[in-house]
Structure formats: structure tokens, C-alpha cells
Amino acid sequence: MTTTIDPKTSNASAPSRAELLATPGIASGEFVQETLALTRRLFIQLKRRPTTLIAGIIQPLMWLVLFGALFQNVPEGLFGTSQSYGQFLCAGVIVFTAFSGALNAGLPVMFDREFGFLNRLLVAPLASRFSIVLASAIFITTLSLIQTVAIVITSVFLGAGLPGAAGLAVVALIVLMLVLGVTALSLGLSFALPGHIELLAVIFVTNLPLLFASTALVPLAFMPTWLQFVSSLNPLSFAIEPIRYLYLHSDWTFASIVMDAPWGSVSLGGALLLLAGFDAIALVSIQRLLYRRLS
């Protein structure tokens, strides 16, 4: 006895190619699992070669100690209400360290591209390929928080003081917001540029000019008028000035004026909104690029 197979019935019961290739979405447990696995891979690399973390902690501490000692004999009140230049410099070192680390966020992805590992991930049945980007963001954010904690602890011993618990929470929020935007731009560059040489060139060209065009080392009043406009539009200044204010004032509120820019006064809440706007612009600007590269 022979059995005949109806092609219509067979095709209806068999899964289509699209169904076979379908993968869980971002809200799935698989996405969380693979993001944690990719993040763990980055930390294993860091554990095997901890030089990056060690240098990332030692360098800002050297800035804090050496620059603080260099200007320790300046007249009192020269740097606003700061008791010492070390106290004034602390906010700048925190922000610039987080910025530098976030600017390097695209390097691991770039090296994965060049060594072919990224291609293997792109053909793997991932729940979402955006776990690759998210893992890098989590890794860089964690390193930035570790560096920030080291700087804050060292600054206490150098006499810079310490904000209250609420102030420290706002400091952490500011650092996270800055890291988010800069990390997004760095990851976008890692997919847009042809190789790590070009990415390193962008990092080197961007790093120091943004530092000197901010209020990290001197207040706005020390700068010529044109540089005051540039510095007051620099995202680093929107992070530095609120943190500096939190160190110097225990009675802060979100309405407190943290920066008197040439174009107007900026409150603590306004600085947070400006940083949020910077993050939104950075994320929107790389969205299409990531969809194209990861699709």
C-alpha cells in the first residue's frame, strides 16, 4: 500500500525558510544571555591583559597629583570658590578620564573586524546582533565607573572633599550620560572607518583639543571670549561644571547655576538636559549606520 503526499499539506506543515532563520528579539532571555557572554569575553581579555585598566587608573591619578602640586601655591580665590587647585581639577580629571575611555570604546570592535571575529558573530544565530554593541557599551561603562571611584577616593586624600550620597549619585549619573554619548559615537566610527589606524587618528586628534577647549583645567573667566563660547558649547564642560559644583556646594538643587556661559546661565538640571540631548543626537546619528552594518 502506497501513501501519497499532498504537496499542499506538506508545505503547510513544514516551516518556511524565514521561520527557520527567525531569532528571538531584544526582549528575550537569549538576548540577555548572549550580551552577558560577549561582555564576559571582554572582561576575560582584560583579565589576561590588565594593562589597559591599570594605565587607565594610574594616568588620571598622576594628573590629579602632579597638576594639583604644580598649582598649589596660586593665590586663594583664583579658581573661584575652590580651596585648592586640586579640588578645582578633580571634576575635570573625572570627566576627561571617562571621556577618554569612552572614546576608545570602538577599538575592540574594530580589532574584531580586522581579525575576522566580527564576521563569525554576524553569521551566528544571535537573538540580536545589537548585543555586540551593547556588550561593548557595558564593558566601557564599567571601566569608567571603576576609574571614577579611584579618582574620587584619591581626591579625598588630597583634600578635595567628597559630595554627599545624593551628590555622588548625580556625579555617577553625569559620568554615565557622557560615557553613553561618546561610546555611541566611538562605536559608530568603528563601523564607519576602514581600520584601526584611522580610528586611532580620530582619537588622537579629538582628545586633547576637547580637553583644552573645556573648563577642565581653568575656569571660563580665564579664557578669551572666542574660547569661552567654544568651551561653553563643549559637552565636556556640561559634565565638568555640575560635578565641580557638587564638590563645592552641599546645598545644591537642580535649579542651581553651575556655569555662567557667554550666551546665558546653565543650571544643574539644564546641564543634565543638555547631556541627554547630546546622547540623543549621538544615538540617532549612528542608528542607521548600525542597522546597515549589522543587518
Rank of each mutant, 00 (worst) to 15 (best):
G101M: 13
A192N: 06
V182F: 01
L61N: 01
G164F: 08
S186M: 02
R292I: 10
R48E: 13
L199G: 09
I44T: 14
S16H: 04
M259K: 02
G25T: 14
S136A: 14
S155R: 05
M62R: 05
T253Y: 08
L210I: 03
S186C: 06
I151Q: 03
A98F: 00
Q59S: 09
L70H: 00
F99K: 02
A280W: 11
L42H: 15
L272A: 03
L290N: 05
A105H: 03
A169H: 02
L273V: 15
N104Y: 12
A12T: 13
L211G: 06
P194T: 10
L294R: 06
V266K: 00
A172Y: 00
L21R: 12
I281C: 08
F111E: 13
I26V: 10
V149S: 13
G29K: 11
V156Q: 12
A172R: 04
L189R: 03
M223D: 02
G195D: 15
D260A: 11
L70E: 07
L208D: 09
R41L: 11
Q59G: 14
Q72V: 12
G116D: 06
N207A: 14
F254K: 01
F31R: 05
F43S: 04
S144M: 11
G116R: 00
P163L: 06
T23E: 09
V74D: 09
S84Q: 00
L158W: 01
I94R: 08
R49K: 14
L210S: 04
M177E: 12
D251R: 02
I94L: 15
A201V: 04
A261T: 05
R17Y: 09
L289K: 14
Q72D: 06
P50W: 08
G106S: 11
Q33W: 15
A221N: 11
T253A: 11
T23F: 02
Q83A: 12
L134Q: 11
Q72P: 04
A27R: 05
D6F: 09
S250L: 11
A261E: 07
L61M: 01
S267C: 02
L118N: 01
L121N: 07
L273Q: 05
N207L: 15
R17I: 14
L199C: 05
V95D: 06
F204K: 03
E114K: 01
S100A: 15
D260Y: 10
P219N: 07
I286L: 02
P235F: 02
L199I: 12
L294N: 08
W63G: 08
L36N: 10
T52M: 12
L272D: 05
S13K: 14
F117Q: 09
L275D: 00
L248Q: 12
V149W: 13
